[in-house]
């Protein structure tokens, strides 16, 4: 049998085979291997971070990764943005009938690799099979331990803070959009999908006074900064010209009329901390695989909760959140 059938979600022999042949063999760990409906784990501290995210990316495979990479990195990053060390994940699969088992293996392989890279273990899972036509979809939930005393949150940005972006902006969104049939363009850009747990741990372990960590996924940097400005009640001022991005992201945006600040990212984070610690933070980031392009892009000040950008001519303009679906423009 090379395709997913309803019986794979039906609770019988096929489902048991799928679990042991694919999920157990690739994710295998003592807790998962027990095949309980739950995972029982011990945590080293009693301050934990929890997060869940569902992954529905279309197409499920894109330059630089697939939905499996996203399912692990997305939740790992959400947990890590609290300053926590992610430890355990659960994974729920919703698969369309007829989906190739070899494709499922590709997805699960990506998840296994990313989990290992991020230092997390997948301890519980679930599979459902639905009518063909859409999917595959994956939900993951994660738990991590917070070992720092810092209150890292969207509401913690303060006057005098610096705003750092840890990597190139827009790569994930452009890689995915390039595969949408109705737009169809070629790009060398690969998704930036990556687990940021190591990078964040390095910053935490260095003793930096981190105020805000946020991964600018859907809605891009513009959306994430607007959220932070509103949660913290501060003004964030960025310099457009400092935003690091690959040439291919810039050219795709110019060709199709997208704003790079609106494009989704899956492997970079906004880091906000006191300006006098920014240079040290950059040093630490640059020792990490996913922090080599880290750049200071702006600053936080007391003022109306909004995001502004310095224009080429030196005046300032508002940076708004994107309004809905990204569409190619001709005018």
């Amino acid at each position: 049998m090379d395709r997913i059938t309803k019986s794979h979600g039906g609770g019988g022999a096929h489902m048991r085979a799928l679990i042991s042949d694919i999920f157990k063999s690739k994710f295998g760990n003592p807790e998962l291997d027990k095949l309980n409906d739950f995972a029982a784990v011990t945590l080293p501290t009693n301050r934990i971070a929890l997060s869940t995210d569902s992954f529905v990316v279309e197409p499920w495979e894109f330059p630089g990764g697939n939905i499996g990479d996203l399912a692990i990195c997305g939740t790992v990053n959400d947990v890590a943005m609290s300053g926590a060390k992610p430890l355990y994940l659960t994974a729920g699969f919703i698969l369309p009938e007829g989906f190739l088992i070899s494709d499922l293996e590709k997805i699960v392989d990506a998840m296994a690799l990313r989990a290992e890279e991020a230092g997390v273990v997948i301890v519980s899972g679930d599979t459902k099979v639905v009518d063909p036509g859409s999917g595959p979809f994956i939900n993951t939930a994660g738990v991590g331990v917070i070992e720092t005393e810092l209150e890292i949150a969207g509401s913690s940005a303060k006057d005098g803070d610096a705003v750092i972006i840890t990597g190139h902006v827009g790569s994930h969104g452009i890689a995915v959009l390039s595969k949408r049939e109705s737009i169809g363009f070629g790009t060398e850009v690969l998704s930036d999908v990556a687990p940021l747990s190591g990078l964040i741990a390095a910053l935490v372990d260095d003793g930096l006074e981190l105020h805000v960590l946020r991964d600018p996924t859907r809605g891009g940097v513009a959306e994430a900064l607007n959220e932070i400005a509103s949660q913290s009640g501060v003004e964030i001022e960025i310099d457009d010209n400092l935003i690091p991005m690959e040439q291919g992201v810039l050219s795709a945006c110019e060709l199709l009329g997208y704003d790079p600040l609106h494009i989704a990212n899956e492997g970079c984070a906004l880091v906000i901390l006191p300006a006098d610690q920014a240079e040290r933070a950059l040093e630490v980031m640059k020792t990490q695989r996913y922090g080599v392009h880290a750049t200071i892009i702006g600053k936080v000040s007391d003022g109306a909760p909004r995001v502004t950008a310095k224009t080429l001519l030196g005046s300032r303009r508002l940076v708004d959140s994107p309004s809905g679906e990204l569409l190619p423009r001709i005018c």
């Binding site: 169809g184 363009f185 070629g186 790009t187 060398e188 850009v189 690959e246 040439q247 291919g248 810039l250 050219s251 795709a252 110019e254 060709l255 009329g257 423009r329 001709i330 005018c331």
Partner: peptide
């Protein structure tokens, strides 16, 4: 009125269709 950008012709087929490179983005 109209977004238009310069790019370099990479290849041309017999139907007058080309692949144009806009600096890392082709179409």
């Amino acid at each position: 009125m109209c977004v238009a950008v310069p790019g370099k012709i990479v290849s041309i087929d017999e139907f007058d269709m080309a692949v144009v490179d806009f600096g890392g983005t082709t179409r």
